[in-house]
């Protein structure tokens, strides 16, 4: 009964977008403008440009619609499905509008920004389709809060266990306890692991020391190593969780600002065309 945005309403918006693309392509091939060079200034160029500009405005309206919680009885999913397919159709519509005339000017800037926005959107679509499932698999029924709680619990056990062991081990455990970080900067979150993880380093150190130990100390050390290994595993799981969350959000930090850049460039493009062409 669940339906993803891709297949939503039996590919309704895919069909609409495909029709738009096919009609645009057909007209472009059929049309033979004066001078033989297709460009934005022909009747077809103006037509495609108008459709493209309106599409951009409508696509940007999604950001407003998403936040108008009370507004409209149409499901947001329907909007997003349309946003995706019509956004993709824009590639063809806008490219045909250019007539493949590019240059170092504000017009091509608007085109480039648009393509970047669409590219980031495509990544977003990929992220939305791929990561939710991976995230659930990685979580194994736990929430991030539960993982953190588990890390804290294991940590306490580690410290208790270390109390009966030597100074050096205590220092390693304490260091792991105080300097292990989850999250952090953008790259750290996106990478999904921490090469300088204090717990991992401490585990390494304790394993080294464990090989030298004997008797009852060795027993206690084995217990500690087991605990620390569990902690490393939970930390890895938590970092993966944070990574997926970051991957599902990061593209919006490109998609949205670039959209506003595109809007500015688009306005400049339209005004300059009408006033100075």
């Amino acid at each position: 009964m669940h339906e993803s945005i891709v297949v939503y309403s039996r590919f309704r918006f895919f069909k609409i977008a495909a029709a738009l693309v096919l009609v645009s392509l057909g007209l472009y091939i059929w049309d033979s403008p004066k001078g033989g060079i297709p460009n934005g200034g022909t009747w077809l160029g103006y037509g495609l440009g108008t459709i493209g500009a309106l599409l951009i405005l409508w696509l940007m309206w999604f950001g407003v619609r998403k936040r108008r919680y009370g507004g409209g009885t149409v499901k947001l999913e329907s909007w997003l499905s349309a946003h995706v397919y019509l956004g993709l159709a824009l590639i063809v519509v806008a490219t045909l509008h250019t007539g493949f005339q590019f240059g170092w000017n504000v017009h091509t800037l608007a085109y480039t920004l648009m393509m970047l926005v669409i590219a980031s959107g495509v990544f977003g679509l990929y992220a939305y389709l791929r990561y939710p499932r991976l995230m659930t698999e990685n979580r194994k029924g736990m929430t991030l809060d539960a993982m953190m709680q588990q890390v804290a619990d294991i940590d306490r056990e580690c410290r208790e266990s270390a109390l009966q062991l030597g100074e050096e081990i205590n220092r390693a455990v304490l260091d792991a306890s105080q300097n292990t970080k989850l999250g952090g900067g953008m790259w750290r979150q996106l990478s999904g692991h921490d090469p300088n993880c204090a717990t991992f380093a401490a585990l390494h150190r304790i394993e080294e020391l464990a090989t030298k130990a004997g008797g009852s100390e060795a027993n206690e050390l084995r217990r500690l190593v087991t605990l620390m290994t569990r902690k490393v595993d939970v930390l890895r799981q938590a970092r993966r969780d944070i990574q997926f969350m970051a991957l599902m959000q990061i593209w919006l930090y490109v998609h949205v600002p670039l959209s506003f850049g595109l809007l500015a460039a688009l306005i400049t493009h339209v005004i300059s065309v009408f006033f100075y062409w």
Partner: peptide, 13 residues
Amino acid sequence: GGAACVRACPTGA
């Protein structure tokens, strides 16, 4: 339009 949670879900989840 009915339940807001369902209407506001962007992905149909």
